[in-house]
Amino acid sequence: MTASQAVPQDETVPAEVKASDQKDATRALEVAGLTHAFGANKALDDVSFSIAPSRFCVLLGLNGAGKTTLFSLITRLYSNTSGAIRVYGHDVRRAPGEALQRLGVVFQQRTLDLDLTVMQNLLYHAALHGFTPREARRRAEAQLERVKLADRAKEKARRLSGGQMRRVEIARALLHNPHMLLLDEPTVGLDIDSRRDIVEHTTALCQDEKLAVLWATHLIDEVTPAKQVVVMHHGKVVADGSHDEVLCATGAGDIGAAFAALTQAKSDSLSLDGGGA
């Protein structure tokens, strides 16, 4: 059984529902029949899956599987021409503002302004969401406290370590109280401790704040039994369900073997060391 089948098909989440009520919507993210091509190269081919609110979903795929293209379409860096993407019921094409208000995004690339201080980076982002300077500062301080970097607020972002930068980026993504967090390969290039730290922090956010999380990775050990798994390969979804469902469907003993069976790749060709993308 796939997760998208498990969730009832409810098309009508009223647009005027208050932001806070949206956490109770049936689906945090719904991707339906999404196809996208760059010239002759089909990056996404009829991709469909959905994520329930407060669910942690790992989007697993090798480099070039189409994960980043999918992220770009969800965040409307460019637009989908076929299929639909809905964030808490808001179609990203028809109501991009409504959808983007509900999303917090951590991109694969480092996107902090290195010449500005940590606090200035956060204030800028809060302004992009229309907050007053006072409200922006209040939120920034609270989020920095949460990622245990309050004492680094006045330092230039350049002076942070890779793991700290990622934590600031997560803090920044949460400034506007989104209901869903998208992270594109957030642990790439981090050492083992920082990796564990980021995974644990995000898992806690999902549980404590009831945030839906879409976590793209090519690192198999980031899939744990409690999480939903969507496996992508060559632009297609080849598996979608809970950890156990994917194992059951493939008859594999562990998720690495399941992934290898699904992508017909050898397990040992997969990077498990947190190395570069």
Binding site: S20, L116, A127, H129, P133
Partner: peptide
């Protein structure tokens, strides 16, 4: 919640533009 609802109001637009100009000036 009210702050959030105010997000895309006219003053929200002004704060957004102010933030972008402020960052460029910095």
């Amino acid at each position: 919640e009210q702050e959030e609802a105010k997000g895309l109001s006219f003053s929200g637009y002004l704060h957004c533009m102010r933030g972008i100009v402020w960052r460029e000036a910095l």
